[in-house]
């Protein structure tokens, strides 16, 4: 009897560890944490930790799978990712910042997952990045969700630049009015969200300050985008912040599926 009993457990572990990005509905938070977001002196390096955990930003649960990781340089072209590795609790990589400007490190996924029944027995499946799942023709109660997820963070060497802030028009994306590497605790930051390139109105944005291991309250904030998709964040203090939003609709690009689009970023707010 051990085999049927183990399968769901293994599946769940798989979901969290291997395709964590595809399942933002789980309680765990996905994040990338750069060693620095504001650098001076040219020719610098950053190390980025990436993990899936409850507390921010502590690697305590699972490493973030870095399949599809793209590092983009200030001119909008890809730059090499070096020393990438996956440990028990975190993944890590380095990027050599050879040019001045803003860099983006992002992991995007486009996954299809869901459940169905065959002869009354429930089955689950997932398919990454456009692959079609193998669902038997006899399946009933087929439920499909397309997950379009974007997880990213930014670092700037020298003067901030804007090329990496351009959106792709796919899924949920952040449009910063305030540059993401120019955030200050005594100033409000203004951003907008777009969904498929259009203003994402009335979307709830969750903001959680890091360091919650050492405080009683989570201290999270929730703001809603306006009709133009815009929202404003007033930072309670300097620190690292996790910002995330999710939209569910029927605009899947894959047939017969619901769509869940998520956006998550890590932002550093510096003291005034």
């Amino acid at each position: 009897m051990s085999r049927p009993a183990r399968r769901p457990a293994r599946f769940l572990a798989c979901l969290v560890a291997a395709t964590a990005l595809a399942t933002p509905a789980l309680a765990h938070r996905l994040w990338m944490l750069p060693s620095a977001t504001v650098l001076s002196g040219g020719d610098q390096w950053v190390t980025v930790d990436a993990a899936v955990s409850n507390d921010l930003f502590y690697f305590e649960h699972q490493p973030l799978r870095l399949d599809g990781l793209v590092a983009t340089g200030p001119d909008g072209e890809p730059v090499p990712v070096e020393n990438q590795s996956r440990g028990r609790y975190r993944s890590t990589f380095d990027v050599h910042l050879t040019k001045p400007g803003t860099y983006r490190f992002g992991v995007s996924t486009n996954a299809l997952f869901g459940s169905y029944k065959v002869d009354g027995e429930p089955k689950r499946f997932r398919a990454m990045n456009g692959q079609a799942p193998a669902i038997p023709e006899t399946a009933t109660e087929v439920r499909l969700t397309q997950a379009q997820n974007r997880l990213e963070t930014f670092v700037t060497s020298g003067k901030p630049s804007d090329a990496v802030l351009r959106t792709t028009g796919k899924g949920l994306e952040l449009v910063p009015t305030t540059h993401p590497n120019s955030l200050n605790a005594d100033e409000e930051a203004r951003f907008a969200l777009t969904l498929d390139g259009q203003p994402a109105a009335n979307v709830e944005v969750e903001i959680v300050p890091g360091g919650n291991r050492y405080r009683q309250k989570l201290g999270d904030m929730s703001v809603r985008t306006d009709a133009e998709g815009r929202f404003t964040v007033k930072w309670p203090a300097a620190g690292m912040y996790w910002l995330s939003a999710e939209v569910t609709d029927d605009k899947a690009t894959m047939p017969n599926a619901k769509r869940r689009a998520s956006y998550t970023t890590t932002l550093e707010v510096l003291p005034p």
Partner: peptide, 21 residues
Amino acid sequence: DGEGTKWLKDMRTWWRKSGRD
């Protein structure tokens, strides 16, 4: 190698208002 410029950003207020430019 201009290594001392690596820490200019630690003057955070100045760096943001002027130094980075």
